[in-house]
Structure formats: structure tokens, C-alpha cells
């Protein structure tokens, strides 16, 4: 079975982002970037499927400018076999990303596509569902357990109020939740080896997908700042403040 994993390069999750003063977006110059944490989980799951003999090949793909090659190399260092860089604009809408991935599925014919449930920059939580729609395949979103058996995928999904298990026919699209696994670190020898693994470059334009945005970001602003509060000295003081000042008890 071939597994395709889509990964995204984002601002590192531990960076405190700064909104640009002209309202055009957030500052990304000289800011630490890394693989989206949910994508790391997707890569890890694909590699585990390979290690357990379920998958033969793990192909990673990322869309953006040349900088995404670094992210792809780190996925190769973790154990992916081959990478595809779709060269195109860095910020594309989820629907466009989904269309490119759907076209790539046509070409690569994977039995399983793994994606993170959301990117921590745009927080959309859309791409996996859209790819599934465009390719008429089933979706296992917010997955915390994945079992491939008898030509089907059994997914346990994190839903409000608990867990839900579904059986999906293959090919299937699965988006990962935090609890699916604990991603590994790349070892130095593997990082060196990754440099020699194949990385193909395809042009986004070659997919016959309209890359034009349909949503215009009019303005990006900082959220309202909370007034800094006070430190109380004792439990009695706290109860008194909550009861008489904040009126919430």
C-alpha cells in the first residue's frame, strides 16, 4: 500500500506571533518555522504503517515556495521514502490545496492519505474533508487510532463527548488528532541519509487548478488585550473578590 502524507510548514507553535502594524497579516520574517505539529503526527503514523509492513511506500508532499523543501527533508529524515514539492504560492486557500492534492492522488494512486486535522496558523480544519469530497473517498477526521485491516481502515475519532469508531473503505483520507501517536525525532545519520532521498518538484500551475483566492483577508488585527489582574494573598481574599468584586459566586 502506498501512503501519501501532506505536510505544511508553519510558524513554530512555541513562537508568540506578532500582528503587523499595517494590518496585512502576522510577521513571518525572521520567525522560526517548523512542520505543523499535526502533520508530524501524520508522518509518524505513515512510518509506523511502513514499519509494521502495512505500507510499502510513504510519499510526503508539501505546497509552497522553496522553503518547504526543508520541511520535506525533515519528513524524509523521519523515514518517508520520497518527497514531492509542489512549487506555488505559500498561502493558498484550503479548497485550492485540496484540489492540488486531489490531482496528485490521481497521479500517485495512494490507498491512504494522511493529513493533520488542522494547521496551527490558519486554524481552518478543512483540507482533509475537502480532499475526501473531491475524490469521493471516505474521511476519518480527528483520528486517535488507525487500524488497516482486510482492505478497510478502522478509525477511532475524537468527537465531542467521547470517541467514535468508523470503518472506511480504501482509498481513504485520514486526518490526525494529537492522541494518535508520539512523533519520533530524526537521528543525525537519518538526516544525512535524507539528503540523498528523491525529492521531485512539480509546478502548482501544472495541475490545472485555479489558484486564485476567493477569500480576501481585509485586515488582520491583534485580539483585544486583557487587563492584567491582581494577585490575591489568600484563599479568603480570593473568595471575597470573586463574591463581592467580580460577582461570580
Amino acid at each position: 500500500m502506498k501512503v501519501l502524507v501532506a505536510i505544511k510548514r508553519v510558524i513554530d507553535p512555541y513562537v508568540k506571533v506578532r500582528v503587523k502594524s499595517d494590518g496585512s497579516g502576522v510577521e513571518t520574517n525572521n520567525v522560526k518555522m517548523s512542520m505543523n505539529p499535526f502533520c508530524e503526527i501524520a508522518v509518524e503514523e505513515a512510518i509506523r504503517l511502513k514499519e509494521s509492513g502495512v505500507a510499502e511506500e510513504v510519499v510526503v508532499v508539501s505546497i509552497g515556495d522553496n522553503s518547504v523543501q526543508e520541511t520535506l527533508r525533515s519528513a524524509l529524515a523521519l523515514g518517508a521514502d520520497r518527497a514531492i514539492h509542489v512549487n506555488g504560492p505559500t498561502t493558498l486557500e484550503p479548497l485550492v490545496v485540496a484540489k492540488v492534492l486531489a490531482a496528485l492522488m490521481e497521479k500517485e494512486q495512494p490507498q491512504l492519505v494522511l493529513l493533520g486535522k488542522q494547521a496551527i496558523d490558519s486554524d481552518n480544519n478543512q483540507v482533509a474533508q475537502m480532499v475526501a469530497a473531491l475524490t469521493d473517498t471516505p474521511q476519518g477526521t480527528f483520528t486517535s487510532q488507525l487500524v488497516i485491516e482486510d482492505g478497510t481502515a478502522q478509525v477511532t475519532r475524537e468527537i465531542d463527548g467521547g470517541l467514535e469508531t468508523l470503518e472506511l473503505s480504501l482509498p481513504a483520507i485520514v486526518s490526525t488528532d494529537l492522541r494518535l501517536n508520539e512523533p519520533r525525532y530524526a537521528s543525525l545519520p537519518n538526516i544525512m541519509k535524507a539528503k540523498r532521498k528523491p525529492l521531485d518538484i512539480l509546478e502548482a500551475e501544472s495541475f490545472n487548478v485555479d489558484l486564485q483566492p476567493r477569500q480576501q483577508v481585509v485586515e488582520v488585527t491583534a485580539p483585544p488585550k486583557r487587563e492584567s489582574g491582581e494577585i490575591v494573598s489568600s484563599v479568603d481574599d480570593l473568595i471575597d473578590k470573586l463574591r463581592n468584586k467580580a460577582n461570580v459566586l
Binding site: A133, F142, R214
Partner: peptide, 23 residues
């Protein structure tokens, strides 16, 4: 924007060939 809505609506949007505004 519960797990129900997040799961279903992007699939609907893509079938309609439109984007989605999340959350």
C-alpha cells in the same frame, strides 16, 4: 464549529466548489 460541523461542512463546501469560513 463542533466536531460534527467541522467534520461535515468542509466536505459540503468542496462539493459546492466554494471555500469555507471556519470558526
Amino acid at each position: 464549529a463542533s466536531t460534527f460541523g467541522k467534520n461535515l461542512l468542509p466536505r459540503v463546501a468542496a462539493l459546492l466548489d466554494v471555500g469555507q469560513l471556519s470558526d
